[in-house]
Every structure is written in C-alpha cells, then in structure tokens.
Design a protein around this nucleic acid. Structure first.
Lengths: 229, 229
DNA sequence: CGTTGAATTGATTTAAGTCAATCGACGTGG
DNA sequence: CCACGTCGATTGACTTAAATCAATTCAACG
C-alpha cells in the first residue's frame, strides 16, 4: 500500500517538535523513534480503512490526511483533516474494537508510523509519554465536539467565517491579513461539512464581510465584520 | 451551586465498577476515592459553564447530564449525554485553556467530583490510572467523531433508527425487544441534533419499520427493517 | 379530576444538497 | 507559444430535509 522510506534529518527534526515528542527526555524520544517507520503515500491513497483492525497510528510529516467515514450508499463525511506535525489514529491505542473511520492522503504525503502495540508498552512504563498522548487526545476530543457544536449551531457562512478567523489569527495580527488556504477548497468544504458548492456560495457571501479572495489566497480586511457572523 | 453529600455504599460500589476504576488495584482505587467528593444537583443545575477555568471532572452516579454549547444568540447544541457510571469533563485534565462547553443536570442527579489537579498527579505516577483515563477519552473521542459522521451522513429517521438499534441490542436479543427510553424525548432530540418536533416525526415515520411506541416505552418488532434505514 | 409541561401535528420558511452547465487555471503536447 | 484537455471552482435552477411557529393533544402528577 504505502511505500516505506528512510527517516531523514528533516523528518526527525519535525517529529521532535511535535506535540507528541516535544518535551520528552531525549532517551525516551530515542526509544519512541527507534521503532518508527516512515511511509510515503500518493494522492488519495488509503492508510487504513474502517472495519479493519488498527495496528498503527501516524504523525503527518508532509501533506494532509483526511479522516472520514463512508455511508452504505457510498457518500463520505470528513471527520477531520490533519497536517504536518499532527497525530491521528492514536485513539485506537486504547480502544478494543475495529477502526470506525478510514484515512486517506489528500495529496502526496509522508507520515511517521507508530506501532500501537509498541507504543502501548511505552505508555505503560513512561508516564511522560502517557501524558503526551493524553494531551493529544484531549485536543482531538475537544476539536471533535467543537465540530458537532459548530455544525449544529451555525450556518455555512458562519462556519466558514469562524474558520477564516482562526486562520487569520494564526497568520498575523495586522488589520488586513492575507494568507493562503492550506489545502483545496473541496477538502475544506468536507472539513466544514459542506458540499463544495455551499462553500463557494458561503465564501462569496462573505465578500461583504471584508473577504477578498483570488484562488487559494484569502485577504481579511475587516476582522470585526467577520466576527459578527 | 451543587450540594455536597456523603458517599454511601451504593455510590462506592457503583464507582468501583465504572470504566474509571474497575480493574485498578485496590489501594489505587482507595487513593483516588479518598479525594473524591459527592455532589447532588437539582433539575437543570449547572456543574460548569463554558469559558470558566475547569477544576474538576465528574462521574455520574444517578440521573443524566447534558454537555452543551451555547451560541451567541442563545441557542444550545448538545454535545453529549452522560448517565450512571459515565465520566465527563476528564478531557480538561490535560488541556490548557478554558472550558469549551457547559454541563447541566437533565433532572435530579448525583455525581462524584474529582479534582483535576489531584488526578493529574495520580496519572503521573500510576500508569494504570493513566491508561484508564486514556480508555475513557478514546471512547469519548470516537463517540464524538461518530456523532459528526452521523449528523452529516444520515437523515433524522436514520439517526433515530440507529439509536434505537443500539438500545435494542443492549436490551435483549429476542426478536421483539421492548425497552424504555432512558430519558425524555426532548433530551434525546438534543443528543441526536434534532428539534423535538423532528424527533417526533422521525419516530412516527419509523412505525412502518416495526417501531411500536407508547409514551417512553419502545418496542422493536423488526430489527432488520430498522437496519435498512 | 385538573393542572402543568411534554409531545404531537400541521403549515410555512429556510438552509443546504443535488444536478447541470460554465468558467477558469494549469499542465501537456503539438 | 498556443491550443487543448483536465480538473477544480463557480453559478444557477430546483429539490429536499429539517427548523420554526403555532395550535392542540397527551400524559404524568398531585
């Protein structure tokens, strides 16, 4: 399925600065990384499929993954998008039962793969590592619930506005902020629980709330207007 | 806010059989419970509110809590409902930042309250306990994501059917299964992300899929029909 | 038996999905 | 360098699911 690669300096550096490993003592980092493999995936290649038994979790090194669930009639719903530095699948480490979701790369991507069995052992005798996993899962849990709330409380333009707001805050503090969407609009639409057409309409509806846009570049000219729905 | 009560035998027994404590060695259970307080709440009493700093997590002893988020225009969306034996709020143990959600009792209820600070200390030197928390958070994370997927992929009748299916499976294996909804329909509607009217309509639409219902009692006469949407 | 809050039913509105056509950007090959 | 082809994004017309508003009905409780 996915090609196994060698870990280079860049990968190692990136991994050491992730929420998973940053702050752990060096020999623990060494222990974790010693059983890590690096894998590469083409566009839309599956890392795992719902229903299967889980055997690994991953950290994204480059590119993006899409975590999603497929319905009986073959429609798909995205559960989350993860980019460089982010872990996914770690929730299967302490969950009996098969995978509830599938994961596939959204484009060419590389990942660090961690054996669930081996990591479970480390968790059980290194509280530092257990806490790192707990931190990641706490964030993921809160994000997922935030998603439920967002879907249920806000309309498409509101959800898009909130998302752009988060990006704007992350990308600068000046009044007119410009940034690039981290991935394709169709992927963003999925993340926000929208059909691509709905995202398109929502974005153009936001023009009157100070959104200027050309291709994947977004400029936010009026943060306050964005905040007011 | 909530009244502090004494822990009785019944409470202690229930706690010892929860996912949190079952399987831990006795003196660890003792250590955890020694700093636990029992609180009672009236109907619709808040345990915590979004925006506040979190200082405790809880296990339900009796009754139900509703975890929810309120929007600017004061509409509310439920994130989850938790009943006897279930923990909630534990995700704040390893999350800096304020509460993203509020919790309130759905009726008269009692809870065991655990100090986040104290529990964090126990996690850090008792891997057994860390694993128990990890298990709970993994389940919660998977449930929350399941919710996102369910909302996005299925219509109201489908979501209700799936929920009844879960209850039916839990309550018996015979072909005609009868059981009582664990809480009010309005609460169930919230849990499923529906207005009460929509739940009502969905339930009556399911009559032709083998659902017989009187008040809070539900009878499932045809499991297969339920499975087929 | 009456009162109160929950549940149901009906009529209407609204948000967003779907289907279909067009546009646009980018990369390839002539 | 330009024409073409592909794929993503946009726009429009239409349909559909579910929210909302309003009026009863029902059920549980004293």
């Amino acid at each position: 399925v996915a090609k196994i690669l060698n870990m280079n300096h860049h990968d190692r550096l990136l991994l050491q600065n992730t929420e998973l490993l940053a702050g752990l003592n060096p020999q623990l980092v060494g222990r974790v990384l010693s059983s890590t493999t690096i894998v590469g995936a083409e566009t839309r290649e599956d890392l795992f499929r719902e229903g299967e038994k889980a055997d690994s979790f991953y950290v994204v090194l480059s590119g993006y993954v899409r975590l999603f669930r497929r319905s009986k009639d073959d429609r798909e719903a995205d559960i989350g998008i993860f980019g460089p530095g982010e872990a996914f699948g770690e929730c299967m480490m302490f969950h009996s039962g098969n995978l509830a979701f599938s994961a596939q790369s959204a484009g060419p991507a590389t990942f660090a793969r961690f054996s669930l069995d081996k990591m479970r052992l480390i968790v059980q005798d290194e509280p530092e590592f257990a806490v790192a996993i707990l931190r990641i899962m706490a964030r993921h849990l809160i994000d997922a619930r935030e998603n439920v709330a967002e879907d249920r409380l806000h309309t498409a333009p509101q959800r898009v506005a909130n998302y752009l707001l988060k990006l704007a805050l992350a990308n600068g503090v000046g009044q007119p902020v410009a940034f690039r969407l981290p991935f394709q609009k169709s992927l963003l639409a999925g993340k926000l629980g929208l059909a691509p057409e709905a995202l398109s309409r929502a974005l153009s509806a936001l023009k009157k709330a100070g959104i200027r846009m050309r291709g994947r570049m977004i400029e936010v000219t009026d943060i306050d207007a964005l905040k007011n729905v």
